[in-house]
Design a binder for these strands. Structure first.
Ligand SMILES: [Mn+2]
Ligand SMILES: [Mn+2]
Ligand SMILES: [Mn+2]
Ligand SMILES: [Mn+2]
Lengths: 156, 156
DNA sequence: GACAGAGTGTAGCCTAGGCTACACTTTCAC
DNA sequence: GTGAAAGTGTAGCCTAGGCTACACTCTGTC
């Protein structure tokens, strides 16, 4: 049995089958994009957190970052190294972590998206704590298109 | 400056600060749970796909799984090995992949959740293709509580 | 029944992201 | 100013999840 991914509707038009398997290249591309989104998730959480710490405490130290994220300080320091390599952060030994322009810009977008995702979840009836929890993972998979839709929904 | 994560509202009651940083252990726990959810994501996608292939084509071969996921067949075979180790799949050399009872049960739940997530996105105004794309990542971070809320929202 | 092509499996390599252990630097109290 | 505590950095280990290359098995055609 072959899966074609299309069907003919009641008016005789050929449309994608909503219930069945998507076309193979389409599905592969979706999975691939989801993997890509995931690989950016950790960096997004780091810049958002660093920006928050800089704003509220005036500094972002590796140990504080590590405690907030629930990882060891060694793990945090290694990831901060990656942030530096990718041009998102600046840090000199024993002097705390700062964000580049690029890093701050990313942090702002990530923070705004985080807020919208939480608000959307609350708006459709998700309890507060579940919304806060699930948003932490969901946010990294919300595209600009979807974010815009969430925004429109919240404003009406 | 210290971040306490609480505030006093207009009635004099102490409440969590909605805008600021969450309490440290709370935030660490959220990040930790998001990491846990993520680590299950790949297995969920595999069992859902294998179940779909078994249903529509009658068999699930490593190459087909690989093509659908957009990875090499070697990667797929390695992951199928992990599914076996975790008691979700059964496979004998050159004889295709099957799901255990546990695997089928997981597949059903994952498929149902996938559908609800897509429907929720559509219901709040996300365009079809963005909904299908983003759901592929979002689904793995939707808790039972949130899923139930989505369900209620869709039924009203 | 041979053999070509498709499918399968294994080996070996890589990076990301966890960890612990240990050594070094800084800071703060006295 | 010194010494202890806190913080920082490095080394080395692990697993998951990618990849390519290569060898083996199966299947369908002639
Ligand atoms: Mn997050
Ligand atoms: Mn976030
Ligand atoms: Mn998925
Ligand atoms: Mn799915």
């Amino acid at each position: 049995m072959t899966v074609t991914g299309i069907m003919v509707d009641s008016a005789g038009t050929i449309v994608p089958r909503p219930g069945g398997l998507p076309e193979e290249p389409t599905q592969a591309s979706r999975f691939g994009k989801a993997r890509t989104a995931q690989s950016g998730a950790l960096l997004e959480d780091y810049v958002e957190l660093i920006s928050d710490l800089l704003g509220s405490a005036g500094e972002a130290r590796p140990t504080d970052i590590a405690r907030r994220l629930g990882v060891s300080h060694a793990t945090a320091i290694k990831t901060i190294g990656r942030l530096k390599r990718e041009g998102l952060a600046l840090a000199k030994p024993y002097r705390g972590v700062f964000l580049t322009e690029t890093g701050e810009t990313l942090a702002s977008r990530v923070r705004a998206r985080h807020r919208v995702v939480v608000d959307l979840l609350l708006a459709v009836g998700v309890p507060r704590e579940a919304a806060e929890q699930d948003a932490e993972g969901i946010e990294h998979h919300v595209s600009d298109t979807t974010l815009a839709a969430f925004d429109r929904f919240l404003r009406r």
